[in-house]
Design a protein around this nucleic acid. Structure first.
Length: 411
DNA sequence: CCTCCACCGGAACGTGAGGAGT
DNA sequence: ACTCCTCACGTTCCGGTGGAGG
């Protein structure tokens, strides 16, 4: 009996999908067959890499651009096309893709590369240089051109850049095969931290991916929406609105696609057959709230305490509080939960960090006779943040702790 | 115009954890 | 197994400052 109703429950939900045709194409992991408004960059890439098909070593390339500007998609796309063509021409050419955010140490990177050539390298245990020579050995077994795409290469720099140095010099040790690298970076200034030798070798060619403007994002969204959504379920304002909102966020196409997908999910949840403006607005809010919640959840305890102090004061009706007020409350909270107490100097920095994260507003103002301080206020809704903060075991007991706020005469 | 508040924020230093080199 | 380095996090010390009130 219960089984039947359960079946029925899911059956209803399955049949009741009046909106989506293929939601996957709205996810960031999807690589489209056609990349709009990136012709220049793709042509550039192809022009540089074409020498691989002639058996020559292509120049190393550095690719810059902010998140959601199509760097990864374009690079992968060109990689795939290159491999296709090389197969056709019977030239040995391999394109490897590595995401340095996941694989973030010298050892892991080399081990991963070696493994892609069928070498059996353990997760840990070998000396790094042994892995390196194993890798060289295996690729040098035949004539081939190898192109390594290092996505999020800036993540690798912080861990010391000898990997890059070693890799950039690898060609001198190879007899038959040739290696060239493509570094992909979000950070426009990351070469500043680079060893100059690596810098000049890696940055032989540079390609910049500018942010999309609202019209370009519209085009991209229209293109994907055709595949993702059933015909005529999107209200006319939906795509322009998603595009405009995302263009404000520095032309981030990923954000735009997220918006479009979440909007659809909102409409779906309400059993509507059309996606309307309201759903996009809700989606925008939800994405922003999710972001804040995630940031707050992963804050270090001390920052959480500072933030909780701000919330506490705001709840007591204080509008623009000063660093001193926040610090006083913070002291009481620290005492209450028996944790380390930081100096006011440090709290100033933590407040600035929270400001940068967009969780609070902090502006330095002068109150004349009454000194110079930061005016602090929360820039997100109290209830969500408060709930997330109280999820932290160490802050839990503060819920029922109500210290008085020291009043200041000039307020 | 000067004072003086209540903090800002730079600089130098201390510490402990974790990685790389040997 | 050992030292050496680096890096994040904090502290101490302190010179600097916009503007209300005198």
């Amino acid at each position: 009996m219960e089984n039947k109703s359960l079946n029925g429950l899911f059956q209803d939900l399955l049949e009741n999908d009046p909106i989506f045709k293929n939601k996957e194409v709205l996810r960031p992991s999807y690589t489209p067959d056609l990349l709009l408004h990136r012709d220049v960059q793709i042509n550039n890439l192809a022009t540089i890499l074409v020498s691989a098909l002639r058996g020559e070593t292509p120049s190393n390339i550095l690719i810059y651009g902010k998140t959601g500007t199509g760097k990864t998609a374009a690079t992968r796309y060109v990689g795939i096309e290159l491999e296709k063509k090389s197969e056709e021409m019977n030239v040995s050419c391999v394109v490897l893709y590595i995401n340095c955010e996941v694989i973030d140490t010298q050892y892991r990177l080399l081990a991963n590369l070696a493994r892609q050539f069928g070498e059996d390298v353990p997760m840990t245990g070998w000396p790094t240089d042994q892995v390196f020579s194993k890798f060289k050995e295996s690729i040098d077994s035949k004539e081939q051109v190898i192109i390594i795409i290092l996505d999020e290469i800036d993540k690798l720099i912080k861990k010391g850049d000898n990997v890059l140095y070693n890799l950039s010099r690898i060609n001198t040790d190879l007899k038959k095969s040739k290696i060239s690298m493509i570094g992909v970076s979000n950070d426009l200034k990351f070469t500043e931290f680079l060893d100059p030798r690596v810098k000049s070798s890696l940055g032989e060619e540079e390609i910049i991916f500018p942010p999309y403007d609202a019209n370009q994002i519209s085009d991209i969204l229209r293109d994907r929406a055709q595949i993702a959504y059933k015909n005529d379920v999107l209200d006319d304002v939906v795509i322009p609105l998603c595009a405009a909102l995302a263009a404000q966020e520095h032309g981030d196409a990923r954000r735009a696609l997220d918006l479009l997908r979440v909007s659809g999910e909102f409409a779906e949840r309400e059993n509507k057959s059309r996606v309307e403006e309201e759903h996009v607005r809700n989606a925008q809010d939800k994405i922003e709230v999710d972001r804040i919640v995630e940031v707050v959840r992963t804050l270090p305890t001390q920052s959480k305490l500072v933030l909780y102090s701000v919330i506490y004061l705001q709840n007591k009706g204080y509008r623009n509080m000063t660093t001193g007020q926040v610090y006083n409350i913070y002291l009481k909270f620290c005492h209450n939960i028996d944790t380390d107490v930081l100096t006011q100097r440090r709290i100033t920095d933590l407040i600035s960090e929270l400001d940068m994260l967009g969780i609070i507003n902090a502006v330095v103002v002068s109150k004349g006779r009454y000194g110079r301080t930061k005016e602090i206020s929360l820039s997100v809704s109290i209830s969500n943040v408060r709930k997330v903060l109280l999820e932290d075991n160490r802050l839990k007991s503060l819920e029922s702790f109500n210290p008085p706020v020291v009043s200041q005469a000039h307020l």
